[in-house]
Write a protein that binds this DNA or RNA. Structure first.
Lengths: 243, 243, 243, 243
DNA sequence: GATGAATGAGTGTTCATTCAT
DNA sequence: AATGAATGAACACTCATTCAT
């Protein structure tokens, strides 16, 4: 890592994807690096291990990405891109506010639960004080649409008398993300302290339900019964809002 | 060739505290290690750096703690102990439910915000899959009292008609911890994505208020106005529930 | 923290020999390691010293042999291979029994005397309780032919009435090896105790003669005069039977 | 070892033995050191391990023996002394030549077989090029009587027509020692190569018999039948001639 | 694109030895 | 005589990176 600065080749090429190289060594490399960086962190990850896992020669990493940092950034951008792509396919604006919110929370939870390497990657990026996210325009550009969407949903819900009216969208977004993310990210210490395995499917579902319940419980307008907010807490798979 | 890590010394002595040996190198060592492990993780932390910061000879680390892992475990246990000690001094059971809850949330948030190294340590411990927390009886033993206390507070609040009655204490605890912890732990990526500095004092206070609001909003019994739950959101510094 | 030794490279290549890479760093490495291990033992040998002597980068040792143990094993196998190779070129079976035996003893003595590092290596390997010899199939496989040859020679000699008939080949081999090996291996304490330098050429020759005399003296069939066994005790350089 | 030269306390005291200290910490220390040095060699032996095994404080070693080398020398001298003491109690001169020789060989073999740590110590001392034996007057002084005794026995045997007359006592001594010592010292590689466990009691006895047979076979005067030399090859426990 | 060999700067750990009491 | 704490100098091994082809 940053022992001697080298110039990364890629750039435009990186975005362009495969240029007809072997089967797809670049893809394999990114995948292997993603797993290794998630599991070990930037510093902990070993270039040799990544190369071995991707079944490529170590030098190729330097050829493609300049250095370890370059590879890490590529992995991070790739991971964000993937999510944004999936988000693009969702149409939350078409749903009613409560239903949209339910979907949003459920999807966020599910995505975190099913993509622990991604959660790990974000945790690691915070340990690095977001050094790479800050560097990447690509990543930052894609976060505003989701906030706009959330703001709109909250507004529609408040107008319909289904949500309370004093909700700050940014704080709300952070809270919702927190309720999902924290559980997945801290599952090991939680499991150790409470002496149960929070990764068991039943407990995951229990948590999922609780999170939806928790968020909708907060969103209730003053004087509203919670009962209404309770039906069909299990709707799944829509859209994730990564941190 | 394999080298076998030796066993660490002390134990009883460790708990007994300083024996009057001047500037107390052992204390300095733990403090320096805490900071280094929090900043760099177990693997990333450098034994040399810790020794230099503690102004002791590197070998002394091995003399006192056996190896790097031993030092890490000691730091972890020390960190948990410190909090438990502080908890012991608080008397949440003496307060009314709503007030107690307010204090609890406020303190949790404040503790996380003021002890980022501790938050980091826990994040890192999760990256290690809680390998060390699981190993430590000391740490696990001290988690149950706090859960009992929380359970009791929720029960009292529900009985008084101030809290909803269907709250699972464990899930609730995790959620409350999440709302505080996540903000501190992920402040860098959040700041980068939303392009503002979430560490600024005003934003910290705004978050603090939001978290209390969010939790109490959820706790409202059905049909209750949120207004009541809003007064005096600023009570500070009581008790933290670390993960 | 535990570090796991990596696996060594090559294998086939190792046997294949140099690939034309100039001064052949691998060869130099083995030679340097042989000397260092012989002089200092496995534990006492210093990787840095070996690297310096071989004029290569220390890391290369790990690249080629995995770890210090791997290098030691390679040296051991290389040393045995060399001898076996030399043995292959000798044709003891073509000689008359007494002459063959004389050659065999002389060569064993000479080889030990001229390859003290090899003697040292074996001594060291015994200190290690033959941990590496036991591990190596290569080494074990090549020991049986020489035993067969010895058995055959003894049989031929007995049939011709030149050797006694009750000789156990294994015990005999050990005894012959002992008479040569011990002198070389313990030359320093022997020299100190008897206050003379047993490494002086005349003393070496005296010993050589004595050993041949001793063995042939034992081999005499009952009732035979020793005189016959005495002629031409000086034949040299044929075949060594290392331990 | 020789990192900073320190002055050993002992000297006269060392020879004088205990001066009324604890139970016998000095004895325990020597015994523990003997085992550790035999097993690991001078360099390989660990001062901490010795201290732990002897159940004394590490510093005491430095108090008593100055440094590691001093302790090693003390162990070596102690080991030699012990044997000389035992030798003193034997009265080989009283036996008939053949019987005396038989006893001598048997005892040498038995002593080596039963005191492998001593064998190891000597091997190690040779690796050190007899640096310490050479330094020690005590050790050298005690080797001549045994050579005189051997010379006398050979002379008596030759005069009686029971031994050949051309035997060099020094070479003979070395050969006899070799036949015993080598087997014990190289038992591990021998066992590995011949794929049997040469430490098994039956094989030890077989070897013992062979060695006596071998030596007496050599000693036969010209024209003598071996049969005579064969009776009662099993007499035991008399006197050892260490190297 | 792709590869094997090579390298310098660490990195955790060990060890004999000394200090202060 | 005895002890716990402290230290400097190694030491085996690792890792990101570059060279030559």
């Amino acid at each position: 890592m940053s022992r001697k600065p080298a110039k990364a080749r890629s750039g435009a090429k990186r975005a362009a994807g495969k240029t007809g190289e072997g089967p797809d060594s670049r893809e394999r490399l990114l995948r292997a690096a993603h797993l290794e960086f998630a599991a070990e962190g930037l510093r902990g990850a070993r270039v040799d291990v990544i190369a071995r896992r991707a079944k490529i020669n170590k030098q190729l990493i330097y050829y493609h990405f300049g250095d370890k940092d370059g590879l890490y950034l590529a992995v991070l951008e790739h991971a964000y891109s993937e999510i944004r792509q999936k988000e693009h396919d969702l149409h939350l604006a078409d749903d009613e506010p409560v239903e949209a919110m339910r979907k949003l929370i459920g999807f966020t939870f599910d995505y975190d639960a099913e993509h622990r390497e991604f959660v790990r990657l974000l945790i690691n990026e915070n340990i690095l004080e977001a050094r790479f996210v800050r560097k990447s325009k690509l990543i930052k550009q894609t976060s505003s649409p989701m906030l706009d969407l959330l703001r709109d949903t909250l507004k529609r819900g408040a107008a319909a008398g289904e949500f309370r009216g004093d909700v700050d969208p940014v704080q709300f977004y952070i809270s919702m993300a927190a309720l999902c993310f924290f559980y997945v990210g801290n599952v090991h210490t939680l499991s150790a302290l409470f002496e149960r395995d929070f990764n068991r499917p039943e407990l995951l579902q229990e948590r999922r339900k609780h999170v939806i319940d928790f968020v909708l419980g907060y969103l209730r307008p003053e004087g509203t019964t919670a009962a209404k907010a309770k039906r069909s807490a299990g709707t799944r798979s829509m859209r994730a809002l990564p941190v």
